[in-house]
Design a protein around this nucleic acid. Structure first.
Lengths: 225, 225
DNA sequence: CCAAAAGTGTTCCGTCTACACCCATGG
DNA sequence: CCATGGGTGTAGACGGAACACTTTTGG
């Protein structure tokens, strides 16, 4: 059957999905109770074993769909975690993936069906195996990338106010940003465009709604916030 | 034997080592002819399968030592490559690692013994499988990290001239840097210290030698070049 | 009428950039 | 004596940081 590598040992390889969400000015993480031994019932990232016929990227998408119903997310690899004892069950190499969504885009009924929970990042419980380590690395990457990649828009509805956008940046960077400076910088960015619509939900006065123009971004993907 | 995950499929997992070197103002890559089918005789990164009892990090170090004699290098994970057809032999997931050394620190006799070759990065041949893709990603990471991590010193002898240091930056960033501005910035960095010695090899006048003070760096690892 | 969030400019300071000449010496 | 690489300072532009008040309107 195997032509070439038959003599070499194989290993279990899994993927774990780190799904960040945003709501109420806070960054959250999607976790669930582990449904498998060992560690059954423990809080954990959504993960599963990689099948023979699927790429790592595909495995990450499949696992997330199977376990949470979430589909078609933009996912980015965080890295491979390969310590011998990282998994208490057996030697498993795991590749972590990271995704960002707006909490409201994940239907609550669906979420409950799957038993998924949003928890504030600053109130994160101890997770199964080395999952906390994975989350930590994902946040580091996120912080590094937020100012040069248009990631924030994944965490917001299609139309958003500048205050919401600023909240995302503050949540990810973990520090306050001056409102006037922030808005000044946003104005210079062509691919964040005013829609003309007004949001009346969050304030009495109403706030202008903006939109991320993907086409315009792809034409000129250079910016610095 | 296996307690928990017996029903799940296993996969071959390998590590591939990207070793960058620096010499004569150029960034180089260490490659060798593949000694295994398929692809025997093709240029390739140094790689090998991960054993049951070793972590990914350990596997990377072992493979490099076994195949090149290089030991105790600082290695950083580049990422996991998991496309189904990335390896023409069979389905293998590979984790790429990256290291930096000074070409002169790799004894030439040893190098020839192992059949390793330094090739200029801008004259890189087509490598086995997706190894070119790995190298590309490693360079991207390197560029991103060079200005906030003291990586450059791995590519130089213990004592180096400022011109050499500048050459490293230029080779990695792929652009020319103004000499005066570069030296001005270096002067502000405490952990790059003048040794007092003079290098008379590369110029008639002689150039002051500098050294990376690791302790000082660890005391205050914040800098920006 | 007042609480709550939206919106708006200017000044200052530090940082980055551009730029050209003299120095020391081995051959 | 000259070719080669080493070493040095300044002025102007630019960008980031600090900072406070007015507007709108629902309740």
């Amino acid at each position: 059957m195997t032509q070439y590598y038959g003599e070499y040992p194989k290993t279990w390889v899994s993927v774990d999905c780190i799904v960040f969400g945003f709501e109420g000015g806070k960054l959250k993480l999607l976790i669930g109770k582990r449904k498998m031994d060992p560690g059954r019932g423990q809080w954990a990232l959504y993960g599963g074993f990689v099948k023979a016929g699927e790429s790592l990227d595909n495995a990450a998408h499949r696992v997330l769909l199977d376990l949470t119903g979430l589909d078609k997310l933009y996912m980015k690899q965080v890295g491979a975690f390969g310590d011998i004892d990282r998994d208490p069950g057996d030697r498993v190499i795991s590749v972590a993936y990271c995704a960002l969504i707006n909490v409201k885009d994940y239907d609550n009924t669906l979420r409950q069906q799957y038993g998924a929970e949003w928890v504030n990042l600053d109130e994160l419980p101890t997770l199964f195996a080395d999952h906390n380590k994975m989350v930590k690395k994902a946040i580091t990457l996120l912080r590094r990338r937020i100012s040069s990649e248009p990631l924030s828009f994944n965490l917001l509805p299609d139309e958003f106010t500048l205050t919401q956008l600023q909240n995302v940046y503050e949540a990810i960077l973990g520090e306050e940003i001056d409102k006037r400076n922030f808005r000044k910088r946003i104005k210079q960015i062509d691919f964040i465009e005013k829609t003309g619509a007004i949001d009346k939900l969050t304030s009495k006065r109403g706030a202008a709604l903006y939109r991320f123009n993907k086409k315009m971004y792809e034409d000129d993907p250079t910016f610095k916030l």
